[in-house]
Write a protein that binds this DNA or RNA. Structure first.
Lengths: 137, 137
DNA sequence: TGTTTACTCTACTAAATCTATAGGTTTATT
DNA sequence: AATAAACCTATAGATTTAGTAGAGTAAACA
């Protein structure tokens, strides 16, 4: 299941992408519009800023704005930043690979092979959907 | 991410499906072969038994065995029993639907629409893969 | 009938993660 | 200087995960 963190993050990005101008939007504007706890959203936006997807401006008239064009922000990237691996098991993750301690032979593991299929399908969607696609739907 | 519970459950079912005869296999045989904590596996097998996928026999020569042919056990069903909803958000779940409290209009939610796509893709795989398919791979 | 074997069931726990919240700090604007 | 708004650290409560402990129950077998 998707965490609220990721869900809120995606909603906030969508909100920013929908703005007419790419000017700073205050956290409280986003949090009120999208029904997200102000403080929680704050921490999420901070993560996205550090990852390079958001820029920020302090002080009066400040807020957050997109650092990239929505078409250059694949959902997969946001997902990895906020949620972590897209794969269902570390042993099938491309970006967060880890060996299973209980599995002597990965290639012989039927669960492993199944989850590779699932991963590929999810990846295909999440890599090929951008923030721009999201606001169109 | 897939919980160990589900992973272990699938591995145990796979182990049983691989047996030549469908005769009771002791928990300890499975737990040792698959490197799973005996007590933890015990609780997982119990769940699968109550769900009707496994039968059990007590006493000497006892153990667990499949109640259905592997081709009649879709992975999606096992997943739902052990892991819960396949959907990434309750608002896109077919079997465990729940409205989001933060979302006034589901149809207007871009995250919602994206996750429907993801769900459909995962479902397509998990519904159409049976335990029998798993042991072949 | 008694013993062993193996599943059944309830309860508990340690650790991790999630979902925030609190409160002070820094920076920019007016 | 006053105010606005992001920045940052710490913490806390709730939930979930991944088990563990131990007594109970049923079947087999001698």
């Amino acid at each position: 299941m998707l965490s609220r963190k990721t869900k809120y993050g995606l909603k906030a990005l969508t909100f920013l992408a929908k703005q007419d101008k790419n000017e700073p939007v205050q956290i409280s504007v986003i949090s009120q519009s999208e029904n997200i706890s102000h403080k929680f959203l704050e921490s999420i936006l901070l993560i996205l800023r550090k990852a390079g997807y958001l820029g920020s401006k302090k002080g009066k008239g400040g807020g957050y704005y997109l650092m990239k064009h929505p078409s250059d922000i694949p959902i997969a990237a946001v997902y990895r930043i906020l949620e972590g691996p897209i794969a269902m098991m570390p042993c099938v993750s491309l970006n967060f690979y880890e060996k299973c301690d209980d599995c002597p032979d990965e290639k012989a593991c039927s669960v492993h092979n199944l989850m590779i299929q699932v991963r590929d399908n999810c990846l295909q969607i999440l890599e090929n959907t951008s923030l721009e696609d999201l606001i169109k739907s």
